[in-house]
């Protein structure tokens, strides 16, 4: 691939998805886009770039989807879901007791494993939230992955990574060699396509935003912009969960890390408001394991 073509693709990806590719990722671009080009009957990456320059919007969308990572699995990284069950939900059940309504946003829902993991945990605590209205919104840039998320249909490999067997048996039905999450769980999550670079202020406010493993693909300027806008849709008593390799530190003062809860952030409060330490102290203690099924 010529440096000129690579530069063009980098700019297109940055503009459309925020994806910031370093100068040495030609191999990644080739490995992801050559199959796409062949499928579209395009002979080479040079020809693909030529078509993109003719403003082939459909092809540009396919290029962005091919380049964005959609790996996901149930209860990925475990700790965020421990936080959800043991810290976030006890705090929200207190702070939202008057309204009895909680709004959750999974900003990079991919194929649905993250929002469904949250929905499963909510089912597991159903006695505490019996008369609550809890909404989960899952958004993603790629519509193809959202179609899969809506179907809730997963391969044997997908259900074995992170999902305890007791929960598989309890919440999934076997359909041939696939496993489908139950209609009641699917009904707890709404999906819609969304590019985080575009305006999402109309979706909020949310009590909890999961935005994991997205910022790592953005450059500094885009991270600052997205975090700033996430802060504006996160309720003052709410929470933000980032991926293990992500942080707000050095990017925004709008969120502060919750002490001793890795990856968990809360909106910064005015000086007169109770500090984070006091808010965390009011939360329930953390049990040791994720899903109390053992």
């Amino acid at each position: 691939m010529s440096p000129h073509d690579y530069d063009f693709l980098c700019k297109l990806l940055k503009q459309r998805s925020g994806l910031a590719l370093a100068g040495d990722k030609q191999y990644l671009v080739e490995s992801r886009l050559l199959p796409l080009a062949r499928k579209a009957g395009i002979a080479s990456l040079a020809d693909l770039v030529a078509k993109l320059k003719e403003r082939d919007d459909r092809l540009a969308v396919e290029v962005v989807h091919a380049m964005t990572t959609n790996e996901s699995f149930f209860f990925r990284d475990k700790i965020p879901f421990d936080h959800f069950r043991d810290t976030i939900m006890p705090a929200l059940l207190q702070s939202r007791a008057a309204e009895r309504r909680i709004r959750i946003w999974c900003a990079a829902a991919s194929t649905g494993q993250e929002p469904y993991s949250l929905a499963i945990l909510l089912k597991e605590m159903k006695d505490k939230i019996a008369d609550w209205r809890i909404e989960i919104l899952g958004t993603d840039l790629a519509t193809a992955v959202l179609d899969k998320a809506k179907a809730g249909l997963y391969t044997q490999f997908e259900v074995q990574r992170g999902l305890p067997i007791q929960l598989l048996v309890k919440y999934f039905a076997q359909i041939g060699e696939m496993w489908q999450i139950g209609a009641d769980i699917r009904g707890m999550v709404q999906y819609r396509p969304l590019n985080l670079l575009s305006d999402f202020s109309y979706l909020g406010p949310f009590d909890l935003v999961f935005c994991r493993n997205v910022l790592i693909y953005f450059d500094q300027e885009t991270k600052v912009d997205v975090l700033g806008r996430l802060a504006r849709v996160t309720a003052p008593h709410g929470f933000l969960v980032l991926g293990a390799a992500e942080t707000v530190v050095g990017l925004t003062d709008a969120f502060k890390p919750v002490p001793e809860r890795r990856g968990l952030y809360a909106p910064a409060m005015p000086a007169s408001a109770p500090g984070l330490a006091a808010r965390v102290a009011a939360m329930a203690p953390r049990p040791a394991t994720l899903v109390g099924a053992k």
Binding site: Q156, F157, Q160, R161, G162, P164, I165, K294
Partner: peptide, 17 residues
């Protein structure tokens, strides 16, 4: 049984379980 792996399996699945 404490957990259950359905063959075929790979390293990630064994590690996760």
């Amino acid at each position: 049984a404490n957990e259950y792996i359905m063959k075929p399996f790979d390293k990630d699945i064994v590690e996760a379980k």
